[in-house]
Design a binder for these strands. Structure first.
Lengths: 269, 269
DNA sequence: TGCAAATCGATCAAATACAATCATATAATG
DNA sequence: CATTATATGATTGTATTTGATCGATTTGCA
C-alpha cells in the first residue's frame, strides 16, 4: 500500500476512533509496526494527527478553523537551528508540575515543540505559545490580563493590578535583544514593560540567547547580570563571554547543535 | 489500554459520576490501582479533574451555555442556525470603535464570523474568540488574566485584582443556561463568578438566548431581569415570554432565521 | 485520645514501546 | 540492464510504563 493511502486511512480511522494503538493501525493497514510508527511521526509533524505513546490520536477539534498560519515571520528563521537547540536545552531544565514563566519572543516560542509532552504550570504573556499549548498539550496555561499586541504577539496591560501579582514561579525563561556586561538589553519599550512585570514574579531568570546576541546591543537595560541565574546559548559562543558571565555568577549552558548529546554546563565561580 | 484512552475515559466517567474511588476507576479501566493513581495525579496537575483522597472528582459540574469540551462540538450544532442568526443580529448592534465585552460560550462564539469585518475594542474571556479575532480581524482584543480552562474554553482567575477592573464597555454580550422571570440563570458557580466580574464593567447587558432557553433553568441566579437591557432570540420564541421581558423593561430583538431581513425589535414598555 | 483500616507515595522488577540501525525489496533513473 | 534512491520490515538496545510491594500517612470510629 502506498504511503499516501496509508496516511489517508490513518486520518480517516482516527476521525472515528479518536485513539488507536500502533498495533491496531498496523493490523488495519497490513503494515509493520515500524512503518506505522514512521507514518504516525510524519502525520504528527504535519499536525494532521497527534502522536502519543502507544499509538496516535485525532487532533483536538477546536471550535473554529484549524489554524496553522505562520505565527512569526522572518526573525524566526534567523538562527532557527540554534534557537531550537537552545529551546530544547531550556525545556530540559523543567520538571513536571513545576510553575514556570515564559516571556514572549521568537526564541522562547521554539520551546513549544518540546513543551508539548510536559505537564507544567505555565504563565506566559505570549499569545502564540498559549494558543499552541492550550490546543495540543496538557500544560496548565495562565495568561496575564491585557490587550493582545499583534506585532509582538504578546498580552500586555498598562495597569498594575493584574493577576500576575498572585503568581510565583521557580523559573522564568526569556530571550533578549542583547547580552553584555551591562546586563540584559532589550530594544522594544513594549517588551521591556512586559518583561519587567514578569521578572519580579520568578526566582531564577533563565536567559535564552544565541551566540550572536553577545554582539548586538539594545538601548534599554532590562536587568543586571547578577539577576540572571542561567544563560542558555549555542556552541558558537566565545569563551570570553562565558567567562564574563561566570564571573558575574551566571551559569552558562551550551546547547549541543544536534540535540543528541547533553547540554554542557559551565557553572558560575 | 493506552494512557490517553484511560485519561479520556476517566474524564468521561467523572463527568457522569462526579466522584469515583480509585478502585471504581481501576475496575472500569481494567488497570491496577497504582496506574489509576498515576493517571489521577497527571490529570489533576493538568487541571482536568481534581484529585481527592480515595479517588477523584470532576473539576466542575459545568453545564449550560458554556459547555464541557467533548460536548462543545456537538452543542455547537444544537440550534446552530438559530444561534447564528442571533449572533448576526447581536453584532449589528455594535458600532465601529465601540468598546464591548463578550462572555464565553457557544452562542457568543458564533459572533466571530460577523465580527471579522468590524473594528471594535473587545474584552472577552473566551479563548477561542480571542484566538480567531486576533488572527483574522483588526479588532483590538483584551483578555482578562487567569488560567485557560480547556473544558469551558475560557480564561478565569480566582483573584480579584484584575485589569478587568480598569475596563468599561457600553455593551456586554452573553449567553445563558436559562432565562425566566427570576432573571438570568447559570449552572456553574465558577462561571457565575467569571460573568459577575464582567457584568459590573458594562453599561448595557445584551443576552443572547435561543428560544429553548426559556424552558431550561439553572440553579443559580446571575442577575435579575431589570439589569438586562436587551434580549436577542429567535423567531420560535413565545409571545408570552416576549411580554414578560417587555414588562420587566427589557427590549427583545427577534433575529430573522434567514438573516436577510432586518431584526424585529419589540421595545420595552 | 488512641487504634485499626484504608489510602498514599516511593521503589523495583517485568512488560511494553520506542528510536535507531541494518538488510531487503521495490521503484525510479540513466 | 545496471544503478541509485526510497520504502519497508526485522532486530537490537534503550527508555518508559506498569503493577506489586512496603512503609508512611491519613481517616474513621470507638
Amino acid at each position: 500500500m502506498l504511503e499516501r493511502q496509508r496516511h489517508k486511512e490513518i486520518i480517516r480511522a482516527l476521525a472515528e476512533e479518536k485513539v488507536m494503538t500502533v498495533g491496531d493501525i498496523a493490523g488495519l493497514l497490513s503494515a509493520s509496526e515500524a512503518t506505522v510508527r514512521r507514518d504516525i511521526r510524519a502525520l504528527d509533524s504535519a499536525n494532521q494527527i497527534r502522536k502519543i505513546r502507544g499509538g496516535a490520536e485525532a487532533v483536538a477539534p477546536a471550535m473554529g478553523d484549524t489554524i496553522t498560519a505562520p505565527l512569526f515571520e522572518h526573525s524566526q528563521l534567523v538562527n532557527a537551528d540554534k534557537k531550537r537547540a537552545i529551546a530544547r536545552a531550556a525545556v530540559e531544565l523543567c520538571d513536571d508540575g513545576e510553575p514556570i514563566i515564559i516571556n514572549g519572543g521568537t526564541t522562547t516560542y521554539m520551546m513549544v515543540e518540546f513543551l508539548m509532552s510536559k505537564k507544567l504550570q505555565i504563565l506566559t504573556n505570549s499569545f502564540p505559545i498559549a494558543e499552541q499549548l492550550v490546543r495540543k498539550s496538557e500544560n496548565r496555561i495562565i495568561l496575564p490580563g491585557g490587550e493582545v499586541y499583534r506585532e509582538q504577539q504578546i498580552v500586555l496591560s498598562p495597569f498594575d493590578a493584574d493577576i500576575v501579582q498572585n503568581h510565583y514561579a521557580s523559573k522564568m525563561f526569556l530571550g533578549a535583544f542583547g547580552l553584555g556586561k551591562q546586563g540584559l538589553m532589550e530594544a522594544d519599550p513594549l517588551l521591556i514593560q512586559a518583561e519587567g512585570k514578569l521578572i519580579g514574579q520568578a526566582e531564577k531568570l533563565i536567559v535564552m540567547v544565541d551566540s550572536s546576541k553577545f554582539k548586538s546591543r539594545g538601548s534599554l537595560i532590562l536587568c543586571p547580570l547578577v539577576r540572571i541565574d542561567t544563560v542558555v546559548t549555542d556552541e558558537a559562543v566565545e569563551a570570553s563571554h562565558v567567562a564574563l558571565l561566570n564571573n558575574a555568577g551566571v551559569n552558562v549552558i551550551i546547547a549541543p547543535a544536534d540535540g543528541t548529546a547533553n547540554a554542557e554546563l559551565h557553572a558560575a565561580a
